Amino acid sequence: MIVIDGTRTEIDVRSFENLEQVFEKVLESGHLDDRIVTDVLVNKEPFSEIYPNQSEDIETSEIDSLEIVSATAAEMASSITLELYKVVNIMAGGGKQVAELFRQADDAEALELYQDLLDVTRDFLGMVGSLRDHFSLKDDNDFGKVVEEFSALFSEMTEVLENEDWILLADLLEYEFLPSVEKWKSVISAIREDIREVAKR
């Protein structure tokens, strides 16, 4: 028996040799059209492939139950925006911490954390950009302004970093980066609204 999003299907696991074939049949059946699989439970245990095509090696004789949980792209995007709020708080906390370390002249530790902060920020911007491309339908001037401000700030911080002016970098982080990061909350909120609009259609 296969359960997809809480509904039992007529697909019989035993009529296939392995789990890979079952997945192929489920996809062919159209049950998951325009949906993204979020969880697979085999015998009530979470399943994810440890190596490519592992599902081919799982014989259906070993399977008592199979449950597939999915979500629409809009539902996934909506849950990603909630994670992005958390990332904004992480960026704010990281910026504060790096500024403090520079002020304490703990340059090595500060630089290491600063690199982590840049990586998190880069990933964050990539994700926001991707969500906006897929779901934002309105021309949002706020978004453009925040991105422009952020880009200018990072150019300035890069210059200051090259000059090894740690105190100025700490000032930029504390007095410009932190307020700038806060502005992303309204951008994420606007994207959430756009995703809701898309989901209603």
Rank of each mutant, 00 (worst) to 15 (best):
T121E: 06
R122P: 02
R122H: 08
R122K: 13
R122A: 08
R122Y: 10
F124E: 15
G126P: 07
G126A: 07
V128I: 09
G129C: 09
L131N: 02
R132K: 10
R132H: 07
H134P: 00
H134K: 04
H134Q: 11
H134Y: 03
H134I: 00
F135L: 01
S136C: 13
L137V: 07
K138V: 11
D139F: 10
D140G: 08
N141G: 14
N141L: 11
N141D: 07
D142N: 07
D142W: 08
D142L: 11
F143E: 01
F143Y: 00
F143V: 04
G144N: 07
K145P: 02
K145A: 04
V146P: 09
V147R: 03
E148V: 06
A152H: 09
F154N: 14
S155E: 14
S155A: 14
S155K: 05
E156M: 12
M157N: 15
M157Q: 11
T158N: 09
T158A: 13
T158W: 01
E159H: 15
E159F: 10
V160Q: 12
V160Y: 03
L161Q: 04
E162I: 02
E162W: 14
N163S: 14
N163C: 01
E164S: 06
E164I: 00
W166V: 11
I167P: 00
I167Y: 10
I167G: 13
L168I: 07
L168H: 09
L169T: 04
L172M: 15
E176W: 13
E176M: 08
F177T: 15
L178S: 06
P179N: 07
V181A: 14
W184R: 04
W184C: 00
K185R: 15
K185T: 09
I188C: 03
S189V: 03
E193R: 06
E193D: 11
D194C: 06
I195E: 12
I195A: 08
